[in-house]
């Protein structure tokens, strides 16, 4: 197994960013902060896909005279829709956070869990 630094460096950066987002999601009790971490995770996944679609010397996939090499349009299509769907689902998550704040008075998940345990007989 040979390790090619130049061939993989941006996948490695993407993995680092992904793990940063993952860390925020599992380590921080604040629900809004969790959603921020989820967004970072999401953007790094998008970046992974777009990096895979890049072709050396290619150009944007719009047909024009004199251009022969194009980058792969398929990941672009998938990610374009995923971005808009991502913001819609983030909005749904934020709406749930607002309702949780209303019901419990806090958005820290450890406090919510403590309240839940108190309520149980």
């Amino acid at each position: 197994m040979e390790i090619n630094f130049l061939g993989h460096y941006n996948y490695w950066v993407v993995i680092f960013l992904m793990m940063t987002g993952f860390y925020v999601v599992i380590a921080r009790p604040n629900l809004v902060k969790k959603l921020i971490g989820l967004n970072i995770f999401q953007i790094s996944v998008f970046l992974l896909y777009i990096s895979m679609g890049k072709v050396d010397g290619g150009s944007a996939p719009i047909l024009a005279e004199g251009i022969k090499i194009f980058s792969n349009p398929l990941p672009h299509v998938l990610i374009l829709t995923a971005i808009v769907v991502g913001v819609a689902t983030t909005a749904l998550g934020l709406a749930l956070v607002v309702r949780i704040k209303e019901a419990y008075g806090t958005i820290e998940d450890d406090e919510i869990q403590a309240m839940e345990e108190e309520m149980e007989p």
Binding site: A88, A91, A95, V98, R99, K101, E102, G105
Partner: peptide, 15 residues
């Protein structure tokens, strides 16, 4: 989505 979130704030928030 935006109007619904903004409308919450106008009503004085969840509390």
């Amino acid at each position: 989505i935006f109007f619904t979130f903004a409308g919450q704030y106008r009503r004085g928030g969840p509390d």
